[in-house]
Structure formats: structure tokens, C-alpha cells
Amino acid sequence: MLLLGDARLPTGGHTQSGGLEPALLAGMAAGDIPAYLTTRLRTTTLVDAATAVVALRTLRAGGAVELVEQAWAARTPSHVVRQASEELGRGYERLLTRLDDLTPRPVRRGEPRPIAVARLAARLDVAATDLARVICHDDVQSVCAAALKLAPLDPVDTVAWALDVAPLVERVVAQVADLRTPADIPAPAAPAAEIWQHAHATAPRRLFRA
């Protein structure tokens, strides 16, 4: 679990800003970044954490992960946002092929990040609540780390932000911990953030993939 939550895990996380770069390019004030963490945790991150937990249970039960992916995709209408998540997923799958000691092979079509992380969690015997926590932590830290590149900040500020949203992370974990079926996955949306991230595919000067 510590490995999965580590920013140094080689899965391409450093290419992601958790939607922060698109938000700032769209004119969101840098002062809103802490509140933006709350938006993420209440919407996209919650969807991802729930998807991961349901995927983990489905994998352990030998069920159809495709149905979980369909549920996630229905909650992620922008193909740009889905592709960014699937690219991240490919990074995790790359790592997984190495752990399974299979012949390392290129992963062509990625599963979305929450499902790819769930596969790793299944492989590493990570509990559902820990998986949910990892998803939240990774998302929060993606935004915080990117914030340092995108806004004039003292790095210690972002650590304080991450700690400030810790109670909300625990609420998300509690909210998703017992979910079992794809239909259980909540579908909260952040329409403006979604539009901002969608526009990022055609943004001319960007540091981050998404």
C-alpha cells in the first residue's frame, strides 16, 4: 500500500496534474487550489475510489470487470478524460506485468486508472479501504505536486493542504468501503472541471497530460 501511494512509483504519475493545469489555464485562481481538492474528492476522486473498490471485489469474485469499466465510463463522459485515465492505467499495467514475471509486453489498450490500480491491489492483497485511500491520496498528491510547478508556492503549503483534506479522504473511504456492484458507484460530477480537462487536449502550452 505504501508503494502504491508513493509518487515515485514508476507509472507515469508525474505527467498528471489531477486536472489542475487545465483548471488554472481556464482561469481558476491559484488561491482556489485547496478548495479544488475538495471538489475533486467529492466528485472525480470519489468515482475513482468507488470504481476501484468495486473492481477489486469483482476481481476477487472472478466477475466481469468490463461491467465495472462501463459504469466508470458512463460517469466519465469526456473521451479526453477517459483517455488520460486509460494512459495512466497502462502505466500500472506495465508495472503489473513485471510483478507477475510474465514476459514484459506492451500494453495496448489501458484500463482506466482505478481498475488498473485495483488489479495491482488484488495482486498485492491490499484491502478495499486501503485501496480507496491510495486512490484518494494519489489524486490529492497529483494536484499538490503539480501545484508546485504551476503556482508560486512554498512546498510546505501543499503538505498542509493535503492534511486539511484528510478528514474528507476518510469520509470518501467510508463511503465506498462496502460497495459491491457497478450500479453502486456514485456519479457525482464537476461540470466545469470536466469541460476544462476536455479542452486540455487542444491546449497549446501544457506541462501535464491531464
Binding site: 486536472g19 482556489d32 479544488y36 475538495t38 459504469a71 463522459p77 457525482p188 460530477a189 461540470p191 466545469a192
Partner: peptide
């Protein structure tokens, strides 16, 4: 699948 919460508290958040 979408749950849009446009209560005053929710819609004040950045990105909503």
C-alpha cells in the same frame, strides 16, 4: 450516469 449537485454549497466549489 451523473449526479449533479447544484446546491449553493456545492456549486460554490471551484470546478462545479
Amino acid at each position: 450516469a451523473e449526479d449533479l449537485d447544484l446546491s449553493p454549497e456545492s456549486r460554490a466549489l471551484p470546478g462545479m
